[in-house]
Write a protein that binds this DNA or RNA. Structure first.
Lengths: 323, 323
DNA sequence: TTGAAAGCGCTAACAT
DNA sequence: ATGTTAGCGCTTTCAA
């Protein structure tokens, strides 16, 4: 020590009592002069805390492929930086339905799962004892704390909007990547239709799809049928974009000949031509919220799961139906 | 210890010699049974290594706002995960032209700077002793190792392409966010023009701009002038997108009435209508390369800076000039 | 081949 | 109010 003691320095650094004003000033002066910064690695060992948050994403939904998860990640980053945490991006070990090593080496203070997780994974996470939250979850289990967009409501809003524009022949192209997501959106669609005493034909709800290209094909099937729908509700924006391309290629005008709406409001939605009408959610906020809930858990709390509303964003890809 | 010693366990864990096959097997068995994983935090202290890489971005170019940096970040993440590093996203302290605390607390093994850095920052980074690389740098200094897209070449390619299509009245909308970037693209543009013995009018190169909205206005100025150019070279894709909107609003067809090309090939470029012709670079690869160079530095090497070629990607926003 | 012990940089309990 | 000391979990000399 360049001056006096050692516990003293610790007290000064952490603004703790137990040291006279005089020594405090003295020590502080030396700290300022030398630019001394305490080594975080020793604290990590002492408190067995890594200051790392592990963001877990399935490889087929990398946040850096999928613009949706990418925005959520931004929110997570905002908050984690604010609180002095780093993030590391990882993926589950799918063959064994297990978590990666990083979880078991003390290098993770908390986990954020993107998209739904399997029951096996949830169990492993619980038994690891590490706090975790699931964001963009599709189930509201009381066993895990999660942040859930209201996808049922989203599909309901989208369908209601189309109905209010006078559309009656509405078909749906839904994602079958996550089963519960599909169930929720279909049920939202059907309840809106029901309010108008409408019962869509089976083929109008049967289109379920994984990629933009598949959405293109599904749209083709619908739009070339003899009784083609006047509106398309796509469960994911990127499908709506695929459907728009298909419509154009078929010589159909959007929205005059066919109205199309999506769900999610990804960045792209503002750049399509016409601009995509969709049902959106504040994804950055969603990420921030997930991180906040996680921090609460890390500090020993047991926060409530959150269900977030989704809001219709009217742009140019849907219009009034004229006979 | 559930079996024998303690040094032994360390040897077994790290596959080091100095322990009999018998004890090795015995210990290994216990490790497997108990699922024991060594605590990383103690290694961090012992080796004074954090296994964190700090990605430094200026706030006005957040990788999660800017699709360009976002793709680079993906590359960085790929490689860092592969090597057991976490990343933390931070920004310089601009008021003081200094690095954030995280650099000085032993919580960073290496730094990746996005975009160019100031001389002051470079100096601070060097004197911190922490290995760093600059990605998407615009200068090839031998003091810092960097990954440089060849922006001069990019502008040259774009201009040459337009010239080869018969365009002679080509105007440029360039970014003035980073000075050296602007210099390089302008010089690339001018050398291509010179090969055709063309010397663009001052107002054809004077448009320099920071945002999509400003690009829209710059395009408006150019396209409403009495001798409007037949082609626009935009130094950044997002400017090209702004210019395309402007052209449409003015009733001009792209590319029939006005050819537009960009630089960067961001994700959006494939989704515009018409699809954007641009000069691209493999951004994920760029990030991976930056991370590889950084790892070499961390291990004590002194890697060479890399200059990466950019390639013309012909899509639909430029066509042959007809008088 | 094995075990004992020091030490990485800090905090906190304890003794002074 | 201050100084001394143990200890976080590991690796690595060093001695047996």
């Amino acid at each position: 020590m360049a001056g006096v003691s050692m516990t003293a320095v610790s007290f000064v650094l952490n603004n703790k009592p137990g040291v006279s004003d005089e020594t405090r000033k003295h020590v502080q002066k030396i700290i300022d002069e030398t630019g001394f910064k305490p080594n975080l690695n020793s604290k990590k060992l002492l408190f067995n805390k890594s200051f790392n948050i592990c963001v877990m994403i399935s490889p087929d939904a990398s946040p850096f492929e999928d613009l949706f998860y990418f925005e959520i990640t931004r929110g997570i980053l905002n908050k984690s930086r604010e609180h002095g945490y780093n993030i590391s991006i990882n993926e589950p070990v799918y063959e064994e339905d297990d978590l990666p090593d990083v979880i078991y080496t003390g290098d993770t203070d908390g986990i954020i799962f993107m998209q739904d997780i399997s029951d096996g994974l949830a169990e492993k996470a619980i038994s690891s004892g590490i706090p975790f939250v699931v964001v963009d979850s599709h189930s509201l289990s009381d066993k895990v704390t999660s942040v859930n967009p209201n996808y049922h409501g989203a599909a309901y809003s989208a369908a209601s909007y189309l109905l209010s524009l006078g559309h009656r022949d509405i078909a749906m192209i839904s994602s079958n990547v996550v089963q519960r997501f599909q169930e929720q959106t279909i049920s939202g669609f059907l309840s809106a239709m029901q309010e108008y005493r409408l019962k869509p034909a089976p083929e109008a709800v049967a289109q379920s799809v994984r990629t933009e290209a598949e959405a293109y094909e599904a749209a083709k099937a619908l739009l070339t049928a003899k009784d083609r729908p006047t509106a398309l509700l796509c469960t994911v924006d990127i499908f709506a974009i695929g459907a728009m391309h298909c419509a154009k290629d078929l010589g159909l005008r959007v929205p005059e000949d066919i109205s199309i709406v999506g769900i999610d409001d990804i960045v792209l939605a503002r750049y399509t031509d016409p601009k995509l009408t969709t049902v959106g959610i504040d994804k950055v906020h969603m990420g921030e919220l997930a991180m906040e809930l996680l921090l609460q858990k890390i500090e020993g709390g047991s926060p409530m799961s959150a269900s977030l509303p989704m809001e219709l964003i009217v742009r140019d890809s849907a219009c009034i139906h004229r006979n």
